[in-house]
Amino acid sequence: MSETPYTATYYVLPAWNEEIALGKVLADLRTVDPLGHIIVVDDASCDETIKAAESGGAYVLPMVTQLGPWGAMQAGMRYAAEKGCWRVITMDSDGQHLPSQIARLTDAMDQTDANVVIGACSERGSFLRKFAWTIMKLFSGISAEDLTSGFRLYDHRAIALLVGEEASYLEHQDMGVLARLLGKGMKVVEVDVEMHPRVSGTSRIFNSWLKVLWYMLQTLLLSVSKRRVERVNLEKYKAASAHD
């Protein structure tokens, strides 16, 4: 991929205590895009995540205090936007999202002229996660297969909408982000991708009933507040196979 400013693709990986998985994720990413601009946002980890990121040749944004998944993600997007990104790919640092699947996202964007492509994997996830998806779809009026996927490709127009102060009121890269993008007329499509189980750590949300309950209450309120009058069914881009 190109590395010239204003046509460059940036990879943003928020990381929290991911010293074990991060090295392999970055190495795999380098094999896909040897010259890619990789940004690892260290969300105040207690382990050697920063060292692992620097060893992998990534730019490191070290947070002095933990901002949570969206705060970290937005920091990476702001940095990419400041450097003149053309596209931004967001991925988890725990090994769930496979660099080999990035081509499916870029292909979907090129073919559909979308502003955002979501890498969807509906097979993944616990009962809690699937329950959360159902509630979100019901109340938000947005019908998508994988609403919480962090494996996404954004173009520079979508990025411009997400780096502003208004988007800093959000806490997660799910309903709020999608509602904001759709409300501004952005085209969002989904494409099936393969995902792996995380190599280390646990989900920051879907690891206890209490956290899920709190998350669901917040998401419910956000979904109702930002609900669109017309129901939106996200377009599904059908690629040849999810296991290319």
Binding site: Y59, L61, P62, M63, V64, L67, A75, Y79, E165, S168
Partner: peptide, 20 residues
């Protein structure tokens, strides 16, 4: 809180530039 978030992000961005 949003202002603090923006400041923390800005600080991290500047630190990334310094490291680079």
């Amino acid at each position: 809180e949003v202002k603090i978030t923006r400041l923390v992000q800005r600080l991290a961005m500047l630190e990334a530039d310094i490291r680079r």
